[in-house]
Design a protein around this nucleic acid. Structure first.
Lengths: 344, 344
DNA sequence: ATGAAAGCGCTAACAG
DNA sequence: CTGTTAGCGCTTTCAT
């Protein structure tokens, strides 16, 4: 940009560069993109003009013809969540390497905002959409897919939506956690569930149930309570409700680390010691679990693997259509200090 | 978009809508933007066509004429950092209300990536840039400002760069922390500094020094060590180096919560009890400090205030030029369980 | 080895 | 009340 005679800023365009270099705009374009041979001398003159004027080509215009904006939309509940934040960061960095930019939209678990976000991305003509959608986003995403825009689901599955996805095997994750408690000798295990059923929380519950069944335990051996939200405080309250409901519990698994951390405090406030009185397992392997005390046993959320897989899938789909792929990654149990054998 | 006869997807344009509704493209444009009166009947026909075809206006083209992309660039070190993540989220939500989108670029504290990020944003013709820049970004940001693109600095100041900024009064922040320790009776206080000097870490150190001077303490009463990085492990090592250097310390302040959390472990591993043997204060008021044990005394980072101020400043600057404003917010000391009077 | 000019999807000035 | 058309900055034929 440069200041015109009225003091208003005016953007430097390819025309300005062409004039300054004494060539046609076509030549400038070709120098920038390397799309045809331009003599060394001319190239030098053009580059000098670009440098001199401070020219930055308008990539939005290019997209008008090429139909590619090199922008990807990422729609997720909340980026301030450590796990999602890291996921977004790794995705952003991966895509940047491929020359893509990311527009991130936080929905704060609000379906109306989520829909608005999708619409905005559509109007910004993103080349593809990555989403950790709410369970109500199925129709919108189907519409988007119908427009020929690749959609990759991350950490979620939407019933009836045929599209690429990358996710964690939450059945195995919860199974591993439950089995571990069973091996330690626990027979009365509580579970703190998500407020509302979603594909992954249903999987978690299934894993929990399967592991108990494997051990020949009756459904009575388990107590389930739903947390009111994703926050720490909901975890405090949920754990207290759970232990009140079934005081015989010797172990509790929470569907989410923050909830487990809340449970830690909720139980401590009630005079329970962790892990001596009650064992506790979280879910997602968030960094905080390592500084909590006791350090929390949890199930990893393989962020880097997921991000890489999602980006690779996206790049592939941008090049060629094909059958939707579903990439499933098995998480690992991270054993730390919040679990122990029950007192006999 | 719709599938043409070759099975390839083709975007629905304003022309398609005009044809389908039997009106001119101008009318369609005016219906969409409400820029002139269109009869109810025609409006209805146009809207029906839009709905029917699944038309999403290409906002990138509009920007070609209006010179506004309604996109803002945010450049910061890392969004996976809880504080920055929350900041980014609040900014994104605020701007969304004003109809703006955010392209977030993580630089991972890498200056080359940072420069690339700025260039990309320039080519995406963002309307303005928000940045938590590295100390080396001055020249680039000056260039950007020179192009007439508003720049708002967040949580940083760059020497010689005249531009809007929103930041925390880190002198007061560290002063409050130090004064509190002095009031508790500590006379030998250590400080864990950032690896490289930056505007805010220099301010912190100044606050530390001033508070000690106020209390009439000589420079010998303080020991300073630099952490190797922003991570937990660097905190562990830094605290251990610090206490080795000066075993008489009864309190330590770290420039950053994560570092303090690392220090917590580093000291505990050496057999020190917190706060009985050594008091510890962090900086930034990150959520983790509340679940650490002991719960960490820290200095708040007023994320919401900062985000709101930055967005308001940005919106103002987008409307009218003017003298750069520097908004300074005073943080608060959050007293918790990692601080106590020294044993006499 | 380079230039001229059409056209991408849309807005806004002009025309009626 | 609505249509026609120039032109935004660039890529890409088609020419030479």
């Amino acid at each position: 940009m440069t200041s015109d005679q009225h003091g208003k800023y005016v953007s430097v365009t390819i025309k300005d560069v062409a004039r300054q270099a004494g060539v046609s705009i076509a030549t400038v374009s070709h120098v920038i993109n390397g799309t045809r041979y331009v003599s060394e001398e001319t190239t030098a003159r053009v580059n000098a003009a670009i440098e001199d004027l401070g020219y930055y080509p308008n990539k939005l215009v290019g997209s008008l013809r090429s139909k590619k904006t090199y922008t990807i939309g990422l729609v997720l509940p909340s980026i301030s969540n450590e796990t999602f934040g890291l996921l977004a960061e790794v995705i952003q960095k991966n895509l940047f390497k491929f020359g893509y930019n990311l527009i991130i939209c936080n929905t704060t678990y609000n379906q109306k905002i989520e829909e608005e976000a999708f619409n905005t991305l559509l109007m910004k003509k993103v080349d593809a959409i990555l989403a950790i959608p709410s369970s109500g986003a199925g129709d919108k995403l189907r519409e988007i897919k119908g427009m020929g825009i690749p959609v990759v689901l991350v950490d979620r599955l939407l019933p009836g939506l045929q599209t690429d996805s990358v996710r964690v095997d939450n059945v195995q994750g919860l199974k591993a956690a439950t089995r571990y408690l069973l091996e330690l000798g626990h027979r009365s295990i509580g579970y703190i569930d998500r407020k509302i059923d979603q594909s992954h929380s249903i999987e978690q519950k299934t894993g929990f149930r399967l592991a108990l069944a494997e051990a020949g335990l009756s459904p009575e051996s388990r107590s389930v309570v739903r947390a009111g939200g994703y926050d720490y405080k909901s975890g405090v309250a949920a754990a207290q409700r759970l232990i009140e409901k079934n005081p015989a519990l010797t172990a509790i698994i929470a569907y989410y680390d923050i909830t487990a951390l809340g449970a830690l405090r909720g139980l401590a406030d009630l005079g329970y010691r962790i892990p001596q009185d009650i064992s506790l397992i979280g879910y997602d392997g968030m960094p905080v679990t390592e500084v909590a005390c006791p350090r929390l046993t949890t199930v990893s959320f393989p962020v880097h693997q997921i991000a890489r897989a999602a980006c690779n899938l996206l790049m592939k789909r941008l090049e060629q259509a094909g059958e939707p792929q579903d990439i499933v990654i098995v998480p690992e149990l991270i054993v730390r200090d919040s679990t122990a054998a029950p007192r006999s």
